[in-house]
Design a binder for these strands. Structure first.
Lengths: 200, 200
DNA sequence: TACATTTGCTTAACACTGTTAAATAATCTA
DNA sequence: TAGATTATTTAACAGTGTTAAGCAAATGTA
């Protein structure tokens, strides 16, 4: 009778162990290094038993993402509860969002799909990756009347531009189809807004 | 003598063929479906000969990314050349950037690391993914004094916020280390800017 | 022309990957 | 203790990236 419960508790425990092992591997070696056999190694079983807890590898990733969303939601809620005015709430929440992303890098990457596969090496191995930077900062420096292209001010402004555009792009690339016109308008507004803010 | 040239030209040709085949597969089946044997199938060779043209699979990805950056740079330059005033140049360039991203989705994904691996299914399979949305739009609607949480205005504002923050986060997650303080300030400025713009 | 050498390409193999089916070991039930 | 159930493993399949060995055709040399 009660032994059934104990067994169920044990099963639940190894389910948790699997997820913890997976996250541990991802934190140590990155998403692309995660494999069923490695998880099995960590929890001291062989690979096939994992399939008694999860349908497949994808299901494990999905569950990790799910927990990520729950954790993020919790921290957002806590941030929100610190204030009563919506303006303060918003600032506090987005800062919490930012903090969550860096406190849980791997989780965030999984949730919002940021591959470090080749991207990290690109900065070192691909000089061409700096071409867009060169072209655009030229205009920024001219507009701001600052000669030093590599000055912090220009760098910061470039990143501001890029963040907005890249953010919009990547969101739209994921759940595509969402009325392109509206997002185009958002983009245009954001860009002209930033341009105005740096025009002397 | 001249036959050497012909052979060199042929070799260059299959090098190009390999890259084209790779891109073709990626466009048809996505990055994760790309394999050396599939490339070999398309160019009608066996897998090992690819290694006479590229050191490994990573090198193929890197070269595709390189070409992506060149193409993007070219289109940015063309956009820039349309105007003389830096303000107009900037607007035109960022629109060109946006257009490039959607005209070359797969390339852009490779260059800036956006995995569609689980992300596309998440919207359907993970209801938890909407929790952050719920929490944040609550404050936005209160601030804007609009009751309907799912109205287009609020949706748009949410995406504006998210784009800025997510863009900054993902950029910082890739080439981390770049002075966190500065980016924190950029974030704060951007957020308070948007908040001001939607405060009645 | 005949032999030797280089080149182009393929087959075979290794160590991995996710996943499934069959075989075995451990446990519970009667 | 014998039988049934459950837990776990081993073996296998098809796929991955990658390397080494082999073969066959083209080339260079005498």
């Amino acid at each position: 009778m009660a032994s059934k419960d104990r067994i169920l508790r044990l099963k639940e425990e190894t389910r948790v162990n699997i997820l913890e092992a997976a996250l541990q591997i991802v934190k140590a070696e990155g998403w692309q290094a995660l494999s069923m056999r490695k998880i099995a190694d960590v929890i001291e079983y062989t690979a096939p038993i994992i399939y008694e807890y999860f349908a497949n590898k994808e299901a494990i990733l999905l569950e990790l993402n799910r927990q990520g969303y729950l954790k993020l939601a919790k921290q957002l809620q806590e941030a929100k509860d610190k204030h009563t005015s919506p303006a303060n709430q918003l600032e506090e929440m987005w800062l919490a969002y930012w903090n969550f992303a860096f406190a849980n890098k791997e989780l965030y990457q999984g949730m919002f799909g940021i591959t470090t596969s080749c991207a990290c090496k690109m900065v070192n191995e691909l000089p061409e990756a700096e071409l867009p930077w060169d072209i655009i900062t030229g205009s920024i420096s001219e507009l701001m009347k600052i000669d030093d292209i590599e000055s912090d001010v220009i760098c910061t402004k470039y990143y501001t531009f890029w963040s907005v555009v890249h953010g919009l792009v990547s969101i739209n690339l994921l759940d595509r189809g969402d009325s392109d016109k509206i997002n185009r308008q958002v983009l245009r507004d954001a860009i002209t807004g930033i341009i105005k803010s740096i025009t002397p």
